[in-house]
Design a protein around this nucleic acid. Structure first.
Lengths: 216, 216, 216, 216
DNA sequence: TATGAATGAGGTTTCATTCAT
DNA sequence: AATGAATGAAACCTCATTCAT
């Protein structure tokens, strides 16, 4: 009555549909090797499934990649846990440290996924079209700006600063900490190592500035 | 009898070796279309040279790409001109603005080149192995940190700040300003538009910080 | 408990067996798009039936196609109506005109169906093996020859002519009027347009001949 | 100095370019098996050449097929030799017999080639765009009509007959003689056998007509 | 040494058929 | 008996690299 189930689902993985199984397999590969050089055959093999199945469930490679990318971002964000979104709780320093740690880990995990797709706008626009709560990790900047503004409202940050500028610098610093390792050790790089104390220094810098005295 | 010269060199371009000619052609393509989807045939055609020559001068596509990438970064940096390396000259604000403008332009120009290669560690390690004075645009951070330290020595920036942290944030902000356009508008994106006043806000923020009062 | 019925038969189409339902669906597609590029999935979808059913009722795609082709020829002939089989009725000219009109319409309708199969002898021999009263439209020639012979017997056509030869020429002319449009305008060609008066000229020619005087 | 030659050309077939070699190989297959089910691999194998070569010489499979089809028609026409184009020479009967023999042989040879392409309009329009003197065998009808008109001018055929109609019937008869064998014995059919005397009967019929007396 | 055609592995996709449910 | 997802061979095409000339 019901149609046949894929061998891969029959033994053990029975809880999900093959569609989900395929997305999960692709996500696994993305998280392992990034998005570049990923072939349909790789994905089918990882899913232990025939080459052609994917076309029973997706319009093509591109749709699957977009969905897997989405799943990857979601997985990473789930693993990283909540951001300190409630202003006023804890110290600002601690909260900023949390944002930075989050940003470094997030970018380390998702940049290899996006990198291989810069040249494939179709996948990226499919991705952009997905219901995408937090999104591309770009959401981080928005979230951070929101947090900063809330702290401003509470008086724990100065009123006159441009929170967008601050958020840009902080999130940018996370990129900057991740990129070199990505470029020069490959996606099989050791987990990013931020020198001890460096995050503290970032936070101090952003809070106090580097100028000799307050201008303006 | 001297060995045959490539047709492309015979007329007009006689000053360079074919090796240099090929690197230049590849660089031209990289700067036009980025690194993704670039075939050796494209390069040979751009160089007006037979498909196979490249193997007489390079170990393979990868070596040529690494060298062309290097040339590309050098070209971009040459075109962008000098950075305010002499501390003490002009105002710190102006100098920081110059660094940021430089960084945005630099990353906008070189990120499409690197993007297509994140997944090809071979090219990137060849690149990393090149005698690479300024390098990957990562040089920018080093240069900026040096500048900041010099200003510290002159007393125009506070002694206790970690200039590495500051440089990381500033250069990171440049990444952050460039990346989204790259990802979601393709490499045929409009030239990056930083909102007016935003660079000023970045500078102000980094100089003054965002905290309510100086800590530490 | 009787065996399950296909969904498509349950509502409304209950009069036929699923076998007949499938043949009808395939015939519909053949008459719409010809035989080329027809997939079993197309047929199943047209029949609103699961992909696999067809293998419960036919040896495979080929048998189904052969039967659908047969049905298609039958349908077309039914729609075209009766041929003037009774010699002596009407004028010979009118009757020949009717045969030609019939032949043109018949070939226009069935040639796209056969065209996609010339290269698939299996289907065609299955088709040829079917109890095939009128057959492949080749029946037309037989019918026409029969009619001509009957008119001969009535003295309305000359005794000594070879009715097979005449029938061959007349039916052949129908092919010839249909083929070019088929080849060079695709099966989405406009319905065959025979220039006005041309059928008359064919009839006149076949009746009177083209020679200057009766030979033999 | 010159590039490498294909292995297949090196031993023995050296006179032609690989482009010609490929067209010839495809033509060979077309003449053997018709056009349907012909894969690029088949062609490459027949040409004893690597799978990918064809794309160095043609835009794709379609262009090659169109050219091979063209070559096939040319070959067949060359082998069949000249048609009696000079009116007035020989007897009209003999000339018509020659046309019919030619037409039967021609269609027997080229119809399997065209049949497989009815569903691929792209190939057919490429073919139609080729410089195509005689063309698709459709040229035969034009040539025959021309010949008939010339005989009319000489008074060997009656003035008032529509030569187009006559040509249509005669060429159509050739189709009709060829088609059934094609459909029901496959392209590996025995060479078409026209019953002895049948061609004579066709000629007699077309010259004298079948009517009891000259009408009009 | 330059040439550029030849090579062939490997990419994405289609589709007739099978088969667990 | 019906279902429809799974299967996997095979289609067309690309492209880095080789190599006879």
């Amino acid at each position: 009555m019901s149609p046949r189930k894929a061998a891969a689902l029959r033994d053990g993985d029975g809880g999900q549909s093959l569609r989900e199984h395929l997305i999960a397999a692709a996500e696994r590969l993305i998280s392992r090797r990034g998005t570049a050089g990923l072939t349909v055959r790789d994905i089918a093999r990882e899913a232990q499934v025939a080459d052609g199945v994917l076309y029973n469930h997706f319009a093509g490679k591109e749709e699957l990649l977009a969905l897997a990318l989405h799943a990857h971002v979601e997985n990473v964000e789930r693993e990283l846990g909540e951001l300190p979104s409630r202003a006023g709780a804890g110290t600002v320093e601690d909260n900023l440290r949390a944002y930075i740690a989050h940003g470094v880990a997030l970018h380390a995990a998702i940049m290899p996924a996006f990198a291989g797709l810069i040249a494939r706008p179709e996948v990226l626009s499919l991705f952009a079209g997905l219901p995408n709560p937090v999104g591309t990790g770009l959401g981080l900047r928005v979230a951070l700006a929101g947090y900063l503004r809330a702290e401003q409202d509470l008086g724990r940050l100065r009123r006159e600063v441009n929170v967008e500028a601050a958020a840009t610098m902080i999130v940018g610093a996370c990129h900057e900490l991740v990129l070199p390792g990505l470029l020069f050790h490959g996606s099989a790089a050791p987990p990013v190592q931020v020198p001890p104390g460096f995050v503290d220094d970032l936070v101090t810098t952003v809070l106090n500035g580097i100028g000799p005295a307050r201008t303006r």
